[in-house]
């Protein structure tokens, strides 16, 4: 006999977005580049057992492409960033619902950590021996989620906000004046793998969405802020990415 409550509830969220990216990498240029960015974010959340479980698993994949120009519009950066993160959260839920599964006034707060992997690069259209900067990093982040479900206009709305703050990790970086030719052709490495922490790589991701039911899914609209920064080997970089996102969430319920 099937139980009334699902044993596992998986939520898959697909978000696509467009926005602005603000790039700076002094290995390539001393100037700020700004331009159009487009991205995709996939989130998969699943409690370890049932919906009331205190531990939940989060998987995140993000891809971002940017075309940015210098202030005089005669130089271009093409930037790509791929990231994947996996982690878990400890959940606490408060609800003032009157039973029957009504989500009115249901607040969930989740705190946990994510292990992330970042791969990317920036290509400059006007440089010679330093035409591009590659990026490879792994980090551990503090992650928090706040989710509030409420009824409005006879619809069940869900506001969800996630904030991730990388605390420590490792990151590849050439030395200040080191060419990639020297690293990869001659094999001369020189502290090219750097330890990172919040002081030398202060970064954050914030994703805030508001969603409402649409058929069997939920439509979501929100903002995604992904601010990546680093200051390693005297090389400074930032990518301040802000996107308006639109997408949907599918919920998969698994019964015994």
């Amino acid at each position: 006999m099937r139980s009334e409550r699902p044993h596992r509830v998986h939520r898959h969220t697909h978000l696509g977005g467009i926005g602005r990216n603000h790039l700076y990498d002094n290995y390539l240029s001393p100037l700020d580049y700004t331009g159009f960015t487009a991205g995709y974010v996939f989130l998969a959340e699943s409690p370890t057992h049932d919906e009331t479980a205190r531990i939940s698993i989060l998987k995140l994949v993000g891809l971002n492409l940017t075309s940015a120009k210098n202030p005089k519009k005669n130089g271009e950066f093409i930037d790509m960033e791929l990231e994947a993160a996996f982690g878990c959260h400890f959940n606490r839920t408060w609800s003032n619902s009157s039973g029957g599964g009504n989500q009115n006034g249901r607040l969930r707060v989740a705190l946990g950590g994510l292990a992330g992997l970042h791969l990317g690069g920036t290509y400059s259209s006007r440089n010679g021996n330093n035409p591009a900067q590659g990026r490879l990093a792994a980090d551990l982040s503090f992650s928090s989620i706040a989710e509030y479900g409420f009824r409005l206009w006879q619809q069940r709305w869900l506001w969800r906000t996630q904030l991730d703050l990388p605390l420590a990790g490792v990151m590849f970086s050439p030395q200040y004046g080191q060419t990639y030719y020297e690293i990869f052709e001659l094999g001369h490495t020189n502290h090219n793998v750097c330890l990172t922490y919040f002081g030398n790589a202060p970064s954050m991701r914030a994703l805030s969405t508001l969603s409402l039911p649409f058929g069997r899914n939920r439509l979501s609209v929100g903002i995604h802020l992904n601010y990546r920064q680093s200051h390693l080997n005297h090389l400074k970089r930032h990518a301040w990415n802000s996107m308006f996102v639109l997408g949907y969430t599918r919920t998969f319920k698994f019964f015994d």
């Binding site: 240029s29 001393p30 100037l31 210098n70 202030p71 005089k72 005669n74 130089g75 400059s124 006007r126 440089n127 010679g128 021996n129 330093n130 004046g177 060419t179 030719y181």
Partner: peptide, 12 residues
């Protein structure tokens, strides 16, 4: 081995 950079006015 030369590197490239640029000036605020757009010259490289």
């Amino acid at each position: 081995m030369p590197f490239s950079s640029e000036l605020p006015g757009g010259w490289s």
